[in-house]
C-alpha cells in the first residue's frame, strides 16, 4: 500500500494543470467520499491533492 502511495505521489507530480476535483469527479463520481473531498480541498498543492485521491480507499478499491 505504501508503495502505491509513493507511486501515486510521483505520478501526481506530473499533472501540470486543471482542477484535481474534476479528475476526482470524473474518476469516481458519487463514489468519492466527503472525507476525501475535504482532504483534497485542504491540500496545499495539486500534487498533494491528487496523491490523496489516488491513495484513498475508494480509488484503490475500484
Amino acid at each position: 500500500m505504501l508503495a502505491r502511495a509513493d507511486w501515486a505521489w510521483r505520478v501526481a507530480a506530473h499533472v501540470r494543470s486543471g482542477d484535481p476535483m474534476d479528475i476526482a469527479d470524473i474518476a469516481l463520481g458519487p463514489a468519492l467520499r466527503p472525507q476525501t473531498r475535504t482532504a483534497m480541498h485542504h491540500a496545499g498543492s495539486r500534487q498533494d491533492a491528487l496523491a490523496l485521491l489516488f491513495s484513498s480507499p475508494e480509488f484503490q478499491r475500484r
Binding site: A5, R10, S55, P57, Q60, R61
Partner: peptide, 23 residues
C-alpha cells in the same frame, strides 16, 4: 526526494483508517 512527507502520509492514513484492508 521521491516520497511524500510525514504530514501527507498522515493524511493518507487518515483517509484509509476505517477501511478493513487498506487501513
Amino acid at each position: 526526494s521521491q516520497h511524500p512527507d510525514a504530514d501527507l502520509y498522515s493524511q493518507i492514513l487518515a483517509l484509509n483508517a476505517h477501511d478493513p484492508v487498506t487501513g
